[in-house]
């Protein structure tokens, strides 16, 4: 990169004649819109329009088949917010996120900090720890389904070694624990971003802290953590959003699979997304399903805002990311 900037000329472009300025601005705007047009058109057609459509459907009692969409006003929303099934699915999903997000963020941060030290086998260990993040969710769920099988799975064989009774992992309340284990397995998914972030911590500052007699923990807290805090915030938001949408482990961990999407879900794994699918595809209640989606979106936005409010305060922006690093 430095070689290229050396090659570039130091002189500023010659000031253009005045009457050309307006035309140049228009040309620049055209170039900007030209470059972003695939995304812009795609977002209007494939995001904005569907979101608007979902909001419209949520005010109807549509069954997905008739061309007539009976308008029911806020009925669906009333039902979403009062149905005990939906609310328990929502609280289950929030509990799941409350467990997964801290474990995943802190776990991958800790692993990245350890991997950032120079030692033998570092590259191999980094690859192994990251690997579950590459494994497709369907495969991850199936791997653990084999392990958690009541009769032949490795999980119960380990319990037997410890002289503990066999557990029915995939049914009842344990199904929720099984789902958590599947999600925690990918704890290393953040280490690559974290390692990249740790590399950007200014070496002079780490040195200065050491010269001042700061221990490793103090240095981490006052130098490293502030420097990587924007990335941690970004990750927290992403992991929260992804975890709230957990769906595949919930349906694929069920001991019997069935072609109809959600008939065999364990009640313990009846997370919000599963509920939405049930409304759409088992009961053809498109209106109610859409209302659930809209409510869910609002919950996600609110949570994101909360995360920004409470964690964003402690985020430390050293430099404007668009400016060069000093």
């Amino acid at each position: 990169m430095s070689a290229l900037s050396l090659g570039a000329s130091r002189t500023r472009p010659a000031p253009a004649p005045r009457r050309g300025a307006r035309a140049r601005r228009i040309r620049a705007a055209l170039a900007f819109y030209g470059f972003i047009s695939p995304w812009l058109v795609g977002t209007i057609l494939l995001t904005a329009f569907p979101v608007g459509y979902a909001v419209y459907i949520s005010f109807t009692d549509w069954n997905g088949m008739t061309s007539f969409m009976p308008w029911v006003g806020l009925d669906n929303y009333r039902q979403v917010l009062t149905s005990s099934d939906t609310l328990s699915a929502l609280s289950k999903t929030l509990v799941l996120a409350a467990i997964i997000v801290p474990v995943s963020i802190l776990g991958s941060l800790a692993l990245a900090v350890l991997l950032n030290k120079r030692m033998h086998g570092r590259t191999v260990m980094r690859t192994l720890i990251y690997l579950p993040a590459v494994v497709p969710p369907v495969a991850a769920a199936l791997i653990w389904k084999v392990i958690f099988d009541k009769n032949s799975g490795a999980a119960n064989r380990i319990l037997a070694l410890l002289h503990l009774n066999a557990v029915s992992w995939l049914t009842g309340q344990m199904a929720f624990v099984a789902m958590i284990i599947v999600l925690v397995w990918a704890i290393g998914s953040g280490i690559i971003i974290n390692l990249a972030a740790l590399q950007t911590v200014p070496a002079e500052q780490l040195e200065a802290a050491k010269m001042d007699g700061a221990g490793p923990l103090t240095t981490f807290r006052h130098v490293t953590l502030p420097a990587i805090s924007p990335i941690l915030l970004f990750q927290t938001v992403l992991v929260t959003i992804t975890t709230l949408q957990t769906f595949i482990p919930a349906i694929l961990l069920s001991p019997i699979s069935d072609s109809s999407v959600v008939t065999n879900i364990q009640p313990a794994n009846d997370v919000y997304m599963v509920d939405v699918y049930e409304q759409y595809f088992d009961y053809s209640r498109y209106g109610l399903g859409s209302a659930m989606i809209v409510v869910f979106f609002v919950v996600i936005l609110a949570l994101t805002a909360l995360i920004f409010k409470f964690l964003g305060r402690s985020v430390f922006y050293a430099v404007d990311p668009t400016e060069g690093r000093s």
């Binding site: 494939l46 959003i241 399903g289 869910f296």
Partner: peptide, 30 residues
């Protein structure tokens, strides 16, 4: 590049990162 509305559009981009795919999936299907 620069054009009018760039800041707003970038805000839209960041917003769309937060839209759960399920929100758009079924209407997109239709």
């Amino acid at each position: 590049l620069h054009g009018p509305g760039k800041k707003i559009l970038f805000g839209v981009l960041v917003m769309t990162m937060m839209v759960p795919p399920i929100v758009t999936l079924i209407p997109t299907y239709l």
